[in-house]
């Protein structure tokens, strides 16, 4: 049972979470621009993972192809996460249009180590580059998400952005746990290879539980 949860828990929970969040998105129509953006891109974030999992299942018998698919989707999801958090950060500062050039430069700079790590991983047959880059990416993403959360909490209309709050607090949990997961070996947990899956699983449970709380809060506000 534990092995089943380790291997398939996150993959099975993702469709449930996406259904829950589509329900949240459809339930209310009056969103702020930030929350509307956050919800749409959050659902797309899960869609990429579901497509990734379908490919991973389909090509699981061929180790080489499975590894290439993994690296391709890892690049895709890493750049997507940077785009998502950066855009939310700029939106939360109301600086999206004013600093569009900075946004493009930052995203391009952040994409370079991600692509390079995947290439080095493939050519040198070692996971060191992707493990290292993912660790630094998670630090940057968590810092960005904390600032987005700080801006959200300082808004006067906090209750209008309640969905965004649950999304980004879940991301802090997700990135924080993945920082730990990137360091299982330096921390001495030689056998805990599934730490990253558990990190994802805990975050998914949080996001799934958030759907219920958002529904309850929205129901109370509307009554």
């Amino acid at each position: 049972m534990i092995e089943f949860i380790q291997q398939y828990g996150a993959a099975l929970l993702r469709p449930l979470v996406i259904i829950g969040w589509i329900f949240v998105y459809k339930k209310n129509t009056k969103y702020t621009y930030l929350t509307s953006f956050s919800l749409k891109y959050f659902i797309c974030f899960f869609l990429i993972f579901i497509i990734w999992n379908i490919f991973a299942f389909s090509f699981s018998s061929n180790v080489l192809v499975a590894r290439l698919i993994f690296l391709f989707f890892w690049i895709l999801i890493s750049i997507y996460e940077f785009y998502y958090i950066l855009k939310a950060l700029f939106l939360s500062f109301n600086a999206e249009k004013k600093h569009n050039d900075i946004f493009v430069i930052t995203l391009s700079v952040l994409a370079i180590p991600v692509i390079l790590a995947a290439i080095l991983c493939h050519t040198n047959k070692t996971y060191n580059p992707v493990n290292t880059t993912d660790f630094y990416n998670m630090i940057l993403l968590m810092l960005g998400t904390v600032i987005v959360l700080k801006n959200l909490l300082s808004y006067e209309s906090f209750m209008e952005n309640i969905e965004s709050f649950f999304i980004y607090s879940g991301f802090v949990l997700y990135f924080g746990l993945h920082i730990l997961a990137s360091n299982v070996i330096p921390f001495g947990f030689r056998q805990n290879w599934f730490f990253a899956q558990y990190a994802t699983l805990i975050s998914l449970i949080y996001w799934l539980g958030s759907v219920y709380f958002i529904w309850k809060i929205r129901s109370r506000l509307s009554s």
């Binding site: 993702r14 999992n53 699981s60 993994f70 890892w74 999801i77 997961a181």
Partner: peptide, 9 residues
């Protein structure tokens, strides 16, 4: 591989 992802290579 210890990065994010549901199924590790």
């Amino acid at each position: 591989c210890t990065t994010q992802g549901d199924f590790m290579p």
